[in-house]
């Protein structure tokens, strides 16, 4: 089985409102899977279906090739967007309680908690109450609690909210390390730069429907516009007009050392980068030549607008 999680044709209605309409996704084992979509698209409902919090009206979910059952709770670690802890409970006690609810033995949970607390340098919080901690501190505890039982599948909903850049980086590194150790991660966020940084695969849900999914690079290839960004010191001043008559040209913004001509040039289907490059070599000094790769952000906005 190369896919850890397969969601097949899942639909869910709340009264007259359709939260999910025939959504299917496959999450490859060992990947970091970005679940994207605007607010209210149905991401949280899908995550809740995977966590067996909400039962789907139609469709089914396979984890490790097996239909979801009660015991799968142990194989999933879930950090919801709406998260919190019992305010008046002590950190250690609370973490132990939540670990035991995930089916861990108390002694084992204690051992691993100590290890994690040491790793994140929060060992001296054990006997503090949650209400004495700052939001970011509580978030760290929540992260530990989510991953403590070493689940096969980790689901993070906006994991970096509430963290300062240093701690966000720390958590990001931990997520990558968990992935390297064999965990599969579903990652739901609105921060496209972290999608760019972390995700191998993405799926985009919009208005209860899945509108896009696949390997991030494949998706980008699919969305590329055959556009190149060039910087050139022209031999004669008419170059810009010449280019504009041959190609579709827009001004570009990037830094160069000289006062070069900076342009985005969009090629048609039958023109190649080499054609453009060989044409340009005779026209001046080329300082910059890059293919414009669509960012996750561009893809997101474009897809949502088109649907």
């Amino acid at each position: 089985m190369s896919n850890l999680l397969e969601v097949h044709n899942v639909s869910k209605k709340f009264g007259d409102f359709t939260a999910l309409n025939n959504v299917s996704i496959t999450v490859p084992r060992g990947s970091i899977f970005g679940l994207l979509g605007p607010n209210g698209a149905g991401k949280t409902t899908l995550i809740r279906v995977i966590n067996q919090i909400t039962m789907p009206d139609h469709g089914h979910v396979l984890l490790d090739g097996e239909a979801l059952k009660n015991h799968h709770i142990r194989d999933i670690g879930y950090l919801p967007e709406e998260r919190g802890l019992y305010k008046s409970m002590k950190v250690g006690e609370q973490a132990l309680y939540l670990a035991q609810l995930k089916g861990m033995q108390k002694s084992e949970a204690k051992k691993r908690l100590k290890m994690w607390f040491e790793r994140l340098e929060i060992g001296d919080w054990w006997n503090k109450k949650i209400q004495e901690l700052s939001k970011g501190m509580a978030q760290k505890i929540q992260f530990v609690v989510t991953v403590l039982h070493e689940p096969k599948l980790l689901i993070f909903d906006e994991p970096f909210s509430g963290f300062d850049p240093i701690n966000a980086n720390l958590i990001k590194d931990e997520i990558l390390r968990l992935r390297d150790e064999g965990a599969t991660v579903i990652f739901s966020t609105h921060r496209m730069e972290s999608v760019e940084e972390l995700c191998d695969h993405i799926a985009l849900i919009h208005k209860s429907n899945k509108v896009l999914d696949g390997n991030l690079m494949d998706v980008k290839r699919q969305y590329k516009t055959n556009t190149f960004q060039i910087g050139i010191k022209p031999n004669n001043s008419t170059l810009e007009q010449e280019l504009a008559s041959k190609f579709s040209v827009t001004p570009a913004e990037f830094k160069t050392l000289g006062d070069d001509l900076k342009l985005n040039i969009k090629l048609s289907q039958d023109e190649s980068a080499n054609d453009l490059l060989s044409y340009l070599t005779n026209q001046g000094q080329i300082s910059h030549f890059v293919e414009v790769i669509p960012s996750a952000n561009d893809i997101f906005i474009q897809t949502v607008k088109n649907n």
Binding site: Q52, I53, E82, R83, G84, L85, Y86, Q142
Partner: peptide, 11 residues
């Protein structure tokens, strides 16, 4: 305290 979703993903 918003702990509820964490809890009911386990029970």
């Amino acid at each position: 305290s918003r702990i509820i979703e964490v809890i009911i993903s386990s029970v």
